[in-house]
Design a protein around this nucleic acid. Sequence first.
DNA 1: GGCTCTACCTAG
DNA 2: TGAGCTAGGTAGAGCC
Length: 932
Amino acid sequence: MPMDFQILDADYEVINDSNPVIRLFGRGADGKSVCCFVPDFEPYFYLKASGDLHAVARLIKDTFAQVKKVEIVEKFEPIGYQKTKKEMLRVTTHLPRDVPEIRGDILKLQEVMRAEGKWEVYETDILFRNRFLIDKNLGGMVWLSAEGDPIDPVKYFRRSTSGSSRCENFACDSSILASGFKKVENFTIAPLKYLSFDIECLPLDGGMPSPDVSPIVMISFSFEPEYRGHKTLVLLARPAEGINSDVLPCKDETEMLNRFFEIFCEYDPDIVAGYNHQDFDIPYITDRVRALVAQGKAINPVVGRDGSKISYRRFGLLTRTEMKGRVVVDALPLVRRAFSLKQYTLRAVSKELLNREKLDVPPLEMEEYWFDTGEKFRKFVDYARRDAELALELILNLRLLDKYIALAQVSGSLLQEIVDGGQTSMVETLLLREFGLRDRVLLPKPDDGVSAERYEMSSDLKGGEVLEPKKGLLENVLLLDYKSLYPTIMMAHNLCYSTVVTGDTPDGATIKPPSGGEFVPPDVYKGIVPSILEDLLNQRSLTKQRMRSTSDENEYRVLDATQLAVKILLNSFYGYSGYARARLYNLTLANAVTSFGRSNILNTREIINNTIRKIVLRSGAALLLDEAGELSPHDKVVELSVAYGDTDSVFVHCQSTMDLSLEEVSLVGNRLSDIVSASLPDPMELEFESIAKRALLIAKKRYALWLFEPRNSGWEDKIKVKGMETVRRDWCELTSVTLNRVLELVLIEGNVDRAVEHVRKVVNNVRNLDPAKDSEIIESLILTRTLTRKSESYKNKQPHLTVAEKLKERTGVMPSIGTRIPFVITAGKGLFVDRAEDPDYVREHNIPIDVDYYIKKQILPPVERILEVFGVKLSSLDFDSKQKGLFDFEAKKPEVKKQEKPRPKKENNEKPKEQNLFKENGRAEQSSLFDF
DNA sequence: GGCTCTACCTAG
DNA sequence: TGAGCTAGGTAGAGCC
């Protein structure tokens, strides 16, 4: 009977020291965990040699015992348009590890052969499991239907010396030896099992615990679905009585650890979650087990589905863990990537995203709590439990994995690689597959020297064009943008590694980008990357189509994640081409893409400003001047000018002597989109996005819009802020709240007077700040900045570095690189960097705040940048001088009624990245402090 | 006050 | 945040 399962992980095992067997781990539709063994797949790579290839082939076979066979094949080289394929050698080895072993030495045969030219090896650094997945057109989270007989992995591996000890603990529900398999289309996700865990250590003197000496005293679990009726479970490293049922007291730490591994394997999770467990808990457990074993304790730390033990590897600062057959998912980096927050402590994240409180036990009192027998002990246990719960809730409630699962499916990379890494592995997987199908070989990864050289060169890569904004407050601004600009440029102009002219000269005309270089047109050779992009684009529209027709909520979510994943992949190829560590790096290509982009946006501006110039609105139609002919008094003439644009967007200012309704402005928007799109090569398209009733343009990459978007038969409005201090995390909340209010008053109510009045009040309140009374006010004065490097690598002092070093002095623990450090500026003399202080410390010690700094450096400059558009001067804001009536900005009432007050509630899965003033919960809270 | 440099964060 | 890219604004600090 065929077995259907979703591929979670893959690797290989060597049988009899001679035959590699692929192992595919997965979860079946029936809920069973599966290991599927696939024999008979062989490792190989390519060699470009010169001279008599038959002789070279013989020499290779004679020289290397690792080589199983050598064949002559016809292949294109990786980069450049080529008229014909070249003969190359495909070298098959016995074992996967033979490939890296001989790839260097094989090149030395060139001397032996006294051959001309330069020999090269290709595809020598592809992991065997990936080679298999790529060649068989499989991939991570793909559904597979496998035929074959059930086997006992223990017996199967008995012949193998390397695998025998491990497979004793083989942990899959079923194993089969595949005789055949095929990919299955299935838009559901297997019933995955999620487990998260968290450890508590007893540090010495409240400092950082060290695995050599500091014991693990508790391990908490959270399960989805339940484990034997438990949603959570807390293991204790000591006996205890009178504790509820979700607690498992053990004799000692060793017994607790053994129970941990037993429960772990019995539960058999697919997803192993935690918060920062990749960097902390897993390495700690690994080292602690090693320390205990060294003391003669017996611990069997199995976590892998194949019976492998817990382990980790450090690459510099980065830690990687692997649990065979499972996927290790650390919620911390996922939350970081998905949400722009001021801090990423579990406490801050839970509060912000789950609206859940983390419980707390002060580090210095942990010992006291642990040895307590009453309330404190129970608190400690609940605290541990809560942390495991929160980690799992983050992943499940926020659906953090959906996107990654879809990315795995669309790109063909394994889920673990995608969760751990960036775009590189996905792009390379797609490239390898497509290059293979088109008989083109791929380069190995460049070594560090080559990457460094390329890195120097990358200054030769120019990016997008940013148009100078028409600064000030504008009414009726159309927002148009190019849908997937760079991918569509690559498709439209056939830009690819395989079409760039580097050697062979094509017959006929070529495509010449503004940046230089030449590319062959698609009828000469259709580019590989453009083909991949085309497939992705088609896949996206098919997915969207299916979304419209499905009524199944789960399927809808999977499809939505899929179309998002496709979009991400579409946009990854350009970046890869200019990435110094890419297998395929080509600045001619990368520059061609951006240069077409730049000339495109400039052309667009030219067309709108000088070719179209005006649109005539007449009986529900938007006409060009030519089409309109003679004008009548009923016509509305709209004058167009591009007010701003950045890379792929254009803001068009619509001016008329008469009032314009949103519907009328839309007519113009649709017409512009049609005209400009028609002038572009397929599939490039300028889309009409939305209308800004008012737009405040401050500088390049800094603006605020009062946006209207069509929503079933009506309009939905919101404020969108880009680049300004309200969306920047290195400004305090008081700044963003104040600025948001100012923007709201100016953009929606058009009332500059009230904005000025508001700022005055805020300034006054800060001036008269009484920190003893308003200790919580400090909250809104906290700035945060990321610690980006080691102390010694900073050339200048930095406020957050000052604070980080103070923290190290006080607690003994230096915050790690990548942490966002909160700080406030305290009163005193001297440089401001020296007056940065930890907010908690300030609160505890009642240290006065530098009120002047907050007024002069935090509130006024950003506010002034906005208000100076209306002629308001800074001096009028700081003092209670009476400066009313100087400016009289009379706002026209918007002709479309604003949507009624109740705004959509902030949902948990909504990214706070995009600021919406009305959702700013800060406003209501702050109003008692600053806004009366 | 203007200029240069470092540092950070954001737009796209 | 040790692996996609560039463009660009603003601040602090040191220098003239």
